[in-house]
Design a protein around this nucleic acid. Structure first.
Lengths: 209, 209, 209, 209
DNA sequence: AATGAATGAGAGTTCATTCAT
DNA sequence: AATGAATGAACTCTCATTCAT
């Protein structure tokens, strides 16, 4: 039924080899610049098979998009604990889950990074919807059951949410840029987490009662 | 004297056609994927001329890099008023200058955006220095003569600076994403500025005494 | 294992079409001026295949160099009879073998002619060694077991060797120039061989006791 | 009247600059690979002028062919002393004149060298005739007033002439190949001349009474 | 199911030649 | 007389995709 049935009937290890090879190639080179030749070589399969499984480079890209969105959902979003009513505490926990997911699936998230920079032509309507649903899920994971009364009365809580998120993303981007190129495994992240918590404390001091 | 003398002797309108065509092509496709064929077609010049003017695709890219860095310097950074001692007010003014520069030179800033994502191989050592100098200039434009005593005593001012900048960048990114694809000229930006100021007010409320 | 496995797995007739087309193009135009476009057209293969087989113009050239050096070795040098002690007689036999090889592989020897004129940059270190070994083999084929006592006592035998070789090469060049352009198959070579032998007789009369 | 009148009205030093630049470029790169861009740059003239003077690259090549053939005639062939009746002695003197001409006009003779290797398409019918006349002149310079009685009675004198010329050319080619790439000015040619005379002595011993 | 040979469009670049100035 | 900007064909090489086996 599915176009990719052929691919999904392969044994898992072969699937993984192909997925990882393709994720890496796309993540490192972008869609246009990625080479199907290099993908098949690095996956150890014949040239024809890639097109037998996926029909085209674009179809492969779509498949990988779905694949990585599922990982985001299952290995990141669903793991966020929504019982924590303190917004900043919840963001802290979400950040830890995100960091774990990112280090478990580096190619996946690198791929997603390039995906979101890509002009939307490469993404199908279905996938746009999927992305939007994921964003909705993400929002609920972040905002559900939050105790707004923790915030100072003289500020707009919704705007405070945004400011806190932008601050956190700003910090994460800065660290990512600093660490770019270095092997993740060789870096001691502890001091960065310490610093991150200090920023969160300032946010609490400023925005909470 | 300059390698690009040939280009700079052209009449200005032709120079601009070529620069804009090239900025756009590079901004939309990145260095590797940009097509010199499309550039010459869209600039309305013969195929050989691009290489007569610039010698190579890379030389053209370098030229554009210098060109855009100069614009950033002259039409953005130097226009920031450093007499304002209130950090958030200064960021507000800087934001207005930036918005003006951005709307005056849309391709330029799109190009610079991709430039900074590019692997540094494409940028010459000279240009890296130039970029770093520009960052230093930008820092002084933002931090010189700031009155730290405006901030609450119980927070680290340097960290507060960062939080404020990340917040502002977060807002700007969000608006940019929302407006992406729409013609700038057809959009009434007033409500966005209103909203922006509300965010800035919250930051003042939270971080200032 | 070999880089050119892809090429050598083709059926022989196709290999020959490509080799001959390439030998001819390089022989007629030299390395730089030879056009891979013309080679593929004249070989009747698609534009991409030449680079699929050989990776680059230079790699093709290297392949042809090896190919032709092997022919020189196997269809010329190894066929020279080194039991003949009379130097001039041996050169006579070598000339016949050479003429046969040349008429069997006309493009091959034309290619080699241009190869040796080429600046050495186009030839790899390995191939230079191969060429030198071939020259050594050629020398032994020509000088081993020669009976020096056939020569007059009042002349330096080593210099006589040279004079005889230059004379023979001179004759061969003159005939080649005369026949250039004409179809080999349409020419009766008998009178040339007669004349050649007359020259050899004069050399014997002059240099031998 | 002449197509090249325009060129020949230039003052001599400019003519020489252009001729030398062009001779060098053609000698070093061959006809096809020679670049008119480099010629004009090295001659210090504008791009258009080359085509104003000569109409086309090929016309320039023809002009240089005539120019160099004239030099061969005037600075080489006419200087050969035809009063010497001893063939080998005359060849010896001719060789000295040739060596002088060659060292006085290196680019000229390098150019001629490539010219003669070139497929005849590049040479006009007129020039072929000129070349043939030059060869006739050369022949008379070499064979007129020669005393055939110096040769042994048991060999064909005409064939001996050829053998001697091939021998001499063989020696010269060998030395040229050995010296290729080295600066002529830095080489002491004396030992080569000594060796050359030894070869000539052997030829006398062998072919003369 | 699987291979890899085959295709032709398009990439960046160089070139001889023309022509407005 | 003189310049050099302009052209477009041809260059080597890479690519996604197809198809005979």
């Amino acid at each position: 039924m599915d176009i990719t049935k052929k691919f999904e009937n392969l044994d898992d290890s072969k699937q993984q080899r192909i997925i990882n090879a393709a994720l890496k190639e796309f993540a490192e080179n972008g869609y246009e610049q990625a080479s199907t030749n290099r993908i098949v070589k690095s996956a150890g399969i014949g040239k024809g098979m890639l097109f037998y499984y996926f029909k085209s480079k674009k179809a492969l890209y779509h498949y990988l998009t779905d694949y990585t969105l599922d990982i985001v959902k299952n290995e990141y979003l669903t793991l966020i604990d929504t019982t924590e009513p303190d917004f900043i505490e919840r963001m802290k926990q979400a950040s830890r889950v995100k960091a774990k997911a990112l280090s478990d699936n580096p190619d996946t998230f690198n791929f997603l990074g390039t995906l979101l920079l890509t002009s939307e032509e490469e993404v199908s309507a279905d996938q746009l919807k999927k992305i939007q649903e994921l964003q909705k899920l993400g929002n609920s994971k972040i905002y559900d059951n939050i105790d707004n009364t923790l915030f100072r009365a003289d500020i707009d809580v919704d705007k405070a949410f945004k400011l806190i998120r932008w601050s956190i993303e700003g910090y994460q981007n800065e660290i990512s840029a600093q660490l770019a190129g270095r092997k993740m495994s060789s870096v001691d992240l502890h001091p960065y987490w310490e610093e991150f918590y200090e920023y969160l404390d300032i946010l609490k001091t400023s925005f909470y009662k």
